Computed example of a mutant assay.
Amino acid sequence: MGGSGTTQLRRALARTGLAVHDKPDIVYHRYWVKQGKAARLAEFARRTEGFPVDPALGLAAVRDYLRRVAGAPATTAVLSTWAEQHLLRHCDTGPVVFVLREPTAAYRSMCEPHRHGDIASEYGGANSWYAFFYAERWRKTAEEYLALEDAGRDVALWPYEELGEHARRAGHGGIATDWDPKPPRTSPALSAETADLIKAITAQIRRTLGVRSWE
């Protein structure tokens, strides 16, 4: 999801020689749903370099797409929407790696002007009710990881802050080249009230995930 280094991750994967689909699941976001099916199919094709997809764009399309990616040589996908929509639990394809960043740092990155600051501005800026919506999205994404783990699926959590270590341990050290996570800088961009709100909404699931660098 936005703020968790998806663009950086996509570039890192591409450097290893993989064909990387760039968040095609974004067409399942309400913005793209409003654009109509033709626009959604065109955007999906653009983000996957013409990879085939079921034109119905239902759950069957999600399952079929993930199976095709899993079976395609040297191909992977960086996704951002299906996890928070809890769609992955209805698909049997793996492996799946979740990359999540400490939520206040992720939100602050999301709101930077050169990233997705325009979206935050629509709500009134970083210290607006948009923080609540973002924290809920973060929590739902983490819930999907736990649901897949509980179901015994081939799934892993690589915290953004520790991605290099996890990648090397899994035999994918090429991803970790030049991976340089910046320390969280939430102030002065985020008020104490905003940071506390995000931490409160995600507190229980962060405890369940047990990532020490997020404590």
Rank of each mutant, 00 (worst) to 15 (best):
P183D: 00
T186N: 15
V33E: 05
G152L: 03
T76K: 06
A147F: 11
S213M: 06
A56S: 15
E122Y: 08
L197W: 02
D178F: 09
G174N: 05
L209A: 05
E122H: 05
L146Y: 07
K23R: 12
A105T: 12
A74I: 06
K182M: 14
W129T: 14
G2Q: 12
A135H: 00
W158P: 06
R10P: 00
P159K: 07
E161Y: 03
S80Q: 13
T208I: 11
E144M: 12
F132V: 11
W158E: 11
A70Y: 02
K23I: 11
G50T: 03
S187E: 14
R47Q: 12
A120N: 05
D180P: 02
T208E: 10
F98T: 07
R168H: 04
P188G: 10
R40V: 13
D196V: 10
W129A: 15
A170C: 13
L100H: 05
L41P: 00
W32Q: 02
P73N: 04
R185T: 10
Y28N: 01
W138H: 02
L148K: 00
R67S: 14
W82M: 12
D154F: 03
M110L: 10
T104R: 13
V97Q: 01
W214I: 15
P24N: 02
A45V: 08
T75Q: 08
L79C: 03
L88Y: 03
T208F: 01
D118A: 14
K182P: 06
L209E: 08
L59N: 01
D64T: 15
I175D: 06
V69A: 06
P159G: 12
V53I: 15
Y28Q: 07
Y65I: 10
G164V: 13
L18T: 11
A38W: 03
S121V: 04
G2F: 10
L57T: 13
L146T: 13
F132L: 05
R40T: 11
V53P: 01
A156D: 07
T75W: 01
A38H: 04
K140E: 12
Y107V: 04
E112L: 13
H114I: 10
G171P: 09
D25M: 13
G152P: 05
L88H: 06
A14E: 15
K140D: 13
H116C: 13
A70M: 05
S121W: 07
S213W: 02
S80F: 00
D22H: 12
Y145E: 00
M1N: 01
A167P: 11
T104P: 01
R169N: 02
T202Y: 01
D118T: 04
C91W: 04
G17D: 07
W214T: 13
T177E: 14
L57K: 04
Y145F: 15
P103V: 03
F133T: 14
D118H: 13
T104H: 00
A14C: 06
V33W: 08
Y65A: 11
A131Q: 08
Y130R: 11
T186S: 10
A61S: 11
V155C: 10
E112M: 14
D25N: 11
D25L: 09
S213I: 12
A19G: 08
Q85S: 00
Y134V: 05
A106E: 09
A195V: 10
D180A: 15
L66I: 10
S121I: 04
R168I: 14
Y130H: 12
R67Q: 09
T48F: 11
P95W: 05
